[in-house]
Design a binder for these strands. Structure first.
Length: 792
DNA sequence: GCCAGTCTCATTTTT
DNA sequence: TGAGACTGGC
């Protein structure tokens, strides 16, 4: 069979060209279930896109029969692009999207089936927290120690497990007042969402599963449609997502029952399922990702084929050796070894700074050096564990004129003025969304405070109308003339915008509707004017941000000529700024380790490699926490193509207080032969103080980092790395008196000061300080955790 | 109802 | 440290 459009033979070849044997197998295997275990940098995107292309080319599937699910919008965009590169227009009609977008698409189509409308709002976590705040307050649940944030995360966890308020209540200890309050709030919350015609983030998945289970005929529509389901980053799926996949890949059954007898006959096999993932890169357990989804795939899908991709095309062998030797310490994993044929490459560079600024300075200097050596800024990235660590880096980078951009972090759509503007749009698109209407009620200031807001709400309840509709009856609410006028004006503006954005049925809104509607809302409500008149200098920036939002609507109209206000709001709710990573900007990327997943750079700086940061101290108490932290560290390492820097600081200022930082235990897991310590923890922290010789020396050297400082001991150990010089300085081996209990009256011995008596102990945790009077050396204050002391 | 100044409090990761 | 809650004066 030849086909003019799709000549089979040559194309099949070019899809396999350049692939190694396991990769080929992953592209070519056909069967009900396939698990591709793809180590970092093993070319999984390539495999996935070629697999899709191969299905299309061979006519095994129409584009519309393919559903590819990724974790981020960025990944979805990339995959689409790469598939289009291969098959061109033949990719049209495929669903390549995130879990959330796919579910929104389904829910919008089917919303009417279960009490929602197409125009439902998507609550982001800020929205749901705001709602919960109100509910917690109404129930006075703070008296039981419930906080909005705590309730939110608990609800989220439950939803990820597909539990609802009722099912949770069945097993909950209802004699505990806090539990009872929680159950009540959970119930309230769900009712409020329904009333507001809104889904929160977790609902998008959970309610889709619910929809499929409650309405099998609806599910069958999608089961018949999607014959090939492919899931990327499968190790990050949570239970709800797992169940969604299960529902989608169930066999289609036809109901031929007659006269009350239910008879189901199989109509078609379940869709073929391909999942790609790497359990070593599972770093989202904290928000419900269940690593078992991937580790038990073969049990879940008997007969599943498993393909292992272990050849790494990204990094040098040194980097991979480091990564392997770190991840090896996680005990419950299947052994998997990344290898590369790119040669050893450069050694990993280690550096210890005195402070985080010192560390940042090293990074800045080294970036500068790399740049001079021909590495582009956009090929360099700096990672850190927590967002707050970026500040020190930024300060130094600004001073050192290193161009940088922060990925993630404060989001455009999180700004108050943007949320206000969007609330205006939501109030028009989905008037049932009371939260949105309440939000804009007094923005700009209209003199409407708590009292008036409550009066409106009461009027609405009393008259069986929505909060939004109550705005149309200011005279009847019993308010002063000024307030009546203010409310009437708001009502007018919303009405006018509604005419533009949601025209009467049958009429097509103009492509410019969203832009125009937003303009009307901002201008006629007085919002823009209020900002422009303000003398707060920040308001100038806010005006600019709103202009930017208007520009976003224009861009949206260009890309989606048929796009409605609801489509626009969906996009805004689901697309974070992290997604539009501007690769051409010529700047160094700064981001958290989590954000780094899926990216790669020629040079990577992994900063803050300290205990309590990575592994983060909070993780210590969580089951599986330390292991997940190790995977996070592993993810960071494996982002690097050619150069990897590991840096830390000996002291770190946190919330205004300086504390001593210890090298991370993970450093010790890397063979010392792989690391070239420019300045090791030993150089900085040799006992005797933090103003070490190495640090002082550095300040006076012209080329600060060009020359490797001589190893201590006069260079008598030429092959040693600095790590050898300070046995006893890194974690296990590092002096760590940990939970050494000292109390006033105890006698201790200090390596340098001899014996003494403890007068008092102050502080707590790692910062406990012993006040000691030594027999010969006088009084000293010692940090109990690290001081070279023993109790007698 | 508004505002500005003070206070307290928690500080991980985010589709 | 810095964001949000709270308070008291207008």
């Amino acid at each position: 069979m030849t086909d003019a459009l799709f000549p089979l033979a040559p194309d099949a070849d070019d899809l396999l060209a350049g692939l190694n044997p396991p990769q080929r197998e992953a592209v070519e295997y056909r069967g009900p279930a396939l698990l591709i275990v793809a180590g970092a940098g093993s070319g999984k995107t390539r495999v996935l896109t070629h697999r899709i292309a191969s299905l299309l080319r061979s006519r095994e599937a129409w584009p519309s029969q393919i559903l590819a699910i990724t974790f981020t919008n960025k990944a979805a965009g990339e995959m689409r692009e790469r598939v289009e590169q291969i098959v061109g227009d033949g990719a049209r009609g495929m669903w390549i999207s995130t879990f959330h977008s796919a579910c929104v698409r389904i829910l919008r189509r089917e919303a009417e089936q279960f009490g929602f409308t197409k125009a439902f709002t998507i609550y982001d976590s800020g929205d749901s927290r705001a709602l919960l705040k109100r509910l917690v307050k109404e129930r006075e649940a703070d008296a039981f120690g419930l906080t909005p944030a705590g309730v939110q995360s608990k609800i989220s966890k439950l939803k990820n497990e597909l539990a609802d308020a009722e099912s949770y209540a069945r097993d909950a200890n209802m004699s505990d007042p806090a539990e009872r309050a929680f159950v009540e709030i959970f119930g309230d919350y769900q009712r409020e969402l329904q009333k507001a015609n809104a889904f929160d983030f977790d609902d998008l998945i959970g309610q889709t599963v619910f929809l499929f289970r409650a309405f099998p005929h609806v599910a069958d529509v999608y089961r018949k449609r999607f014959r090939h389901v492919l899931v990327d980053e499968y190790q990050d799926t949570n239970h709800a997502q797992y169940q969604l996949i299960r529902e989608l890949t169930r066999p289609v059954q036809t109901d031929v029952s007659s006269g009350g007898a239910a008879v189901l006959i199989p109509e078609a096999d379940g869709a073929s399922l391909t999942v790609v993932g790497d359990s070593d890169q599972s770093i989202y357990a904290f928000r419900g990702a269940d690593i078992r989804n991937i580790t038990e795939f073969e049990r879940d899908f008997p007969g599943a084929k498993v393909v292992l991709l272990e050849q790494n095309y990204r990094s040098t062998q040194n980097i991979l050796d480091a990564a392997n030797s770190v991840i090896r310490n996680n005990f419950d994993r299947k052994d998997k070894k990344l290898w590369s044929d790119q040669g050893e490459g450069e050694k990993i560079v280690g550096f210890t700074g005195y402070s985080q600024h010192d560390e940042a300075q090293f990074v800045a200097d080294e970036i500068d050096r790399l740049r001079r050596g021909g590495v582009d800024y956009q090929q360099m990235a700096v990672f850190y564990r927590t967002n707050s660590q970026s500040r020190a880096l930024e300060e130094i980078f600004i001073r050192a004129a290193v161009p940088y951009k922060i990925m993630g972090g404060t989001k455009f759509y999180d700004r108050a003025e943007i949320k206000d503007a969007l609330a205006y749009l939501v109030a028009v698109a989905n008037p049932a969304d009371e939260m949105a209407v309440r939000r804009i009620l007094n923005r700009p200031r209209r003199g409407i405070g708590d009292v008036t807001e409550t009066a409106i709400a009461r009027f609405a309840t009393d008259n069986g109308m929505s909060f939004r509709d109550a705005l149309a009856h200011p005279a009847e609410i019993g308010l002063g003339p000024k307030l009546q006028k203010a409310i009437a004006q708001l009502d007018d503006v919303l009405r006018e915008a509604s005419g533009i954005l949601v025209p009467a049925s049958g009429e097509q809104p103009s492509p410019k509707a969203v832009t125009e509607g937003l303009r009307v809302l901002l201008d006629k409500s007085g919002y823009s004017d209020a900002l422009r008149r303000s003398r707060d200098p920040q308001d100038e920036a806010r005006v600019e941000n709103l202009d930017e939002l208007v520009a976003v609507t224009r861009e949206f109209a260009r890309n989606n000529p048929e796009g409605t206000i609801v489509d626009f709001l969906t996009e805004v709710a689901l697309v974070s700024d992290t997604d539009d990573i501007d690769d051409a900007s010529g700047a160094v990327s700064l981001m958290t380790l989590h954000t780094a997943k899926g990216l790669e750079f020629d040079a990577v700086f992994l900063t803050g490699v300290e205990e309590d940061l990575i592994p983060h101290r909070i993780s210590a108490g969580e089951p599986g926490g330390p292991q997940e932290e190790r995977r996070l560290f592993y993810v960071g390492i494996t982002r690097a193509r050619k150069r990897l820097y590991l840096s830390l600081a000996m002291t770190r200022a946190q919330f205004g207080e300086v504390s001593v930082a210890m090298p991370s235990r993970f450093l010790q897991e890397i063979p010392s032969t792989l690391v070239d310590w420019r300045q090791s923890p030993g150089d900085v922290n040799s006992r005797g103080g933090l103003q070490s010789r190495a640090l002082n020396g550095r300040r006076t050297t012209g080329d600060r980092w060009g020359v490797k400082p001589l190893p201590a001991g006069g260079g008598l150990t030429p092959t040693s790395t600095a790590m050898d010089k300070f046995p006893g300085l890194v974690t296990n081996k590092m002096r760590d008196n940990g939970d050494l209990e000292l109390a006033a009256g105890d006698r201790i011995r200090h390596d340098d000061f001899g014996e003494g008596r403890v007068d008092a102990v102050t502080g707590d945790g790692a910062k406990r300080i012993a006040h000691v009077r030594f027999d010969t050396a006088g009084s000293k204050k010692l940090l109990i955790k690290v001081a070279p002391i023993t109790k007698l």
